[in-house]
């Protein structure tokens, strides 16, 4: 129990009649990188948003460091948020602010650090993701997609979080840039000694950044194990997903209609 950084137990979340999470359970050990895989629309992003408190759960428990965090708000939520860093799928950089201020945002506004000191840290963090200090004064719109991901990663690690969340970190990147981002994720997580939770469809990314893998299907985790066990899981859902087969127990929309 004490080794678990995050423990989700019997979490339910529905949007109207649509049940997205339906008895979801997940254990995330401290210092490990857990990757949640699953088809589109299975609730991966909702899972992250529930942990982050961006969405309330209908039922269930989310323990972080053994403390209940499901549906808490206000000051208590703010304290927990300080443990988190998040890399959003689209970057979610603030387009009216220069790059350095994006990276230093959590330091300046969340931790009330002075702007000069925060700028120095931001430039260090940019260097750690392979970006030169000249980038610091550019606006996000002036950067390529890969550079925006790096800035977003720098922002996620700027406050030295205990837990980092990655939402589809390689989506929209070419395979080489995706591999660069995967390497950076592994390096940053190791350097910080952080716990990581990622969601992705990209199997190359899974094989690179995961310690443990969880497969989400129909609102619950149907397989959970070490990365090394992924190819011999014995689970037909996992096999179909990791090999990208159209036919199998996971019904695609077209297959379901044909049936």
């Amino acid at each position: 129990m004490t080794d678990l950084k995050i423990k989700m137990k019997d979490v339910h979340k529905a949007f109207g009649p649509k049940r997205v999470l339906n008895g979801f359970n997940l254990d995330v050990p401290k210092g490990q990188s857990v990757v949640i895989i699953g088809g589109s629309g299975t609730g991966k992003s909702v899972t992250l948003k529930c942990i982050l408190g961006l969405m309330d759960v209908d039922k269930g428990s989310i323990l972080i460091d053994g403390k209940e965090t499901a549906n808490i708000h206000g000051t208590e939520r703010s304290k927990i948020m300080r443990k988190f860093g998040m890399l959003f799928q689209g970057g979610a950089l603030f387009d009216s602010l220069p790059v350095w201020e994006n990276v230093a945002f959590g330091l300046i506004h969340g931790q009330r650090m002075g702007r000069e000191e925060a700028r120095e840290i931001a430039i260090q963090k940019l260097a750690s993701v392979g970006l030169a200090s000249q980038v610091a004064d550019l606006l996000p719109a002036e950067l390529s997609g890969g550079m925006q991901k790096r800035v977003s990663l720098a922002r996620a690690i700027a406050v030295n979080p205990e837990i980092i969340f990655f939402d589809e970190p390689t989506t929209g990147l070419d395979p080489i840039m995706a591999d660069v981002i995967n390497d950076l994720i592994v390096k940053c997580v190791k350097d910080l000694g952080a716990t990581a939770v990622s969601i992705t469809h990209d199997m190359a990314s899974v094989r690179k950044i995961a310690d443990k893998v969880a497969m989400l299907h129909e609102g619950r985790i149907i397989w959970y194990g070490d990365k090394s066990e992924l190819d011999n899981s014995g689970n037909p859902f996992v096999d179909q997903f990791i090999h990208g087969r159209a036919h199998g127990p996971i019904m695609t929309i077209g297959a379901a209609q044909a049936a």
Binding site: K49, L52, G53, L54, S78, M81, R82, F84, G85, M86, F88, Q89, G90, A92, L93, F94, D95, F105, G106, H109, G110, Q111, R155, V159
Partner: peptide, 18 residues
Amino acid sequence: VTEQLDALTTLSVNPHKY
């Protein structure tokens, strides 16, 4: 739409205040 409001929250900043 671009999740910048969610990003504010994850950076411990209340969007209502900021």
